[in-house]
Amino acid sequence: MFDKLEILQMAQAMATHAATRQGAIAENVANADTPGYRARDLASFAETYRAGNGAPMRATRNGHLDELVEHREPEPLARARPGSESPNGNTVSLELEMVAAADVKREHDLALAIYQTSMGILRTGLGRRA
């Protein structure tokens, strides 16, 4: 019953998105000196969630939705930043990766806060202490 709550699904999707993005950032940092490597990143969680990669659509009656959107994780794509390419063709900027890593931590912390608050509300509603 509680595994179908959209707020919990959204918090899980946020945490998964943050983990996937952190992996892309780590890969960028690991390849900071690789000639020709293109820095990669994910679209923001809001864009991903609005595009149907978050909670799947639900049919409210027969024939309402002919095809349901399947949940899948977004793939990191190469990103181009003007002026960030080094002479060897590498586009990784360690400063920008550090900023992105801090942003990912904030996103992950937000996902955990949403999850913890939702669980506290559920416990209170069931008459248990948070």
Rank of each mutant, 00 (worst) to 15 (best):
F2H: 15
F2T: 15
F2W: 10
K4I: 03
K4A: 12
L5E: 11
I7K: 04
I7F: 09
I7V: 15
L8R: 09
L8E: 06
L8A: 09
L8K: 05
M10Q: 11
A15H: 04
A15Q: 11
A15F: 07
A18Y: 02
A18V: 00
A18E: 02
Q22T: 01
A24N: 02
A26V: 00
E27S: 05
N31I: 01
T34R: 01
G36M: 05
Y37A: 04
R38Q: 14
R40T: 12
D41T: 15
A46T: 14
G52W: 06
G52H: 05
A55D: 01
T60M: 12
G63C: 02
V69F: 04
E70P: 01
R72C: 05
E73L: 13
A78W: 05
A80N: 14
R81T: 14
R81D: 13
P82F: 08
P87D: 04
G89I: 10
G89P: 13
T91M: 07
T91R: 02
V92P: 12
E95R: 04
A101R: 01
V104Y: 02
V104H: 04
H108R: 00
D109A: 01
L110W: 02
A113E: 01
Y115P: 11
T117R: 06
S118Q: 11
L122P: 15
R123P: 10
R123D: 11
R123L: 13
T124H: 14
G125S: 14
L126E: 12
L126K: 06
A130H: 07
A130F: 00
